[in-house]
Amino acid sequence: MYSFEFEKPSTIADAVTALEGEEAQALGGGQTLIPTLKQRLAAPSSLVSLNGIAEMKGVCVEDDGSLAIGGATTHATVAREAAGNYPALAALAGQIGDPAVRNRGTIGGSLANNDPAACYPAGALGSGATIITNARQISADDFFEGMFTTALDEGEIITSVRFPVPQAASYQKFLQPASRFALVGVYLARFADGVRVAVTGASEDGVFRWSEAEEALNKEFRGDALMGLRINPANMIGDLHGSKEYRAHLVGVMTKRAVEACV
């Protein structure tokens, strides 16, 4: 690692100030960032830990029934504390990384990184979540801008994420066998006003909504409704672990399984 200063503010305001420094970078759980730093692929002048900010931690139910999760809440906490109100999201959190990683990794860190194979982007996009920062609210549909790219500005912090709770939802993750990220992960949420299907792991452009599947499922919510639908492999990721065609195929299988898990 290159040398950097370490700061651990206890309020959002202090964190925002600290992040105004040149080449300052926010540190969530660090489960992706620290390996990146070890490889010397990033050279921040200072790391601003968000883990000391009490107001950014925890899971609570809002008045409208939606679930608000603090940006510095660990995956393990979400897996535990969201299980009652939003079991599909809790299940997703419980499938990220491994137990030790889940005890450190945070929802804010995961969403801000927007790894194309990460689980949380699918959960947020599939749920139609709202990403709340120190400066504004961003709908998930506007937040994810492509592989490792989001709508966040420099120094902007995800303070919490608000998830509307659907009638039914399911996350179907097919493991990449080495990293245990998603080779393909499908998050499906069924709301009164329609179905959302978000896919991670599959596309060169990062997480995306499979609108054809949503339309078909809005007409008829059963696995067979997806028959004949096919994702174009051209934009899929093809690598050591699976060809473009295979990923395109898996998107269909995982989506069908998500539907079946909801009915």
């Binding site: 066998p177 080495a178 990293s179 690598d239 672990h241």
Partner: peptide, 15 residues
């Protein structure tokens, strides 16, 4: 291509 445990799949307990 398989230069770390992110891409070199080691058998784990549940494999």
């Amino acid at each position: 291509l398989s230069a770390s445990y992110m891409d070199y799949a080691m058998p784990r307990a549940d494999d």
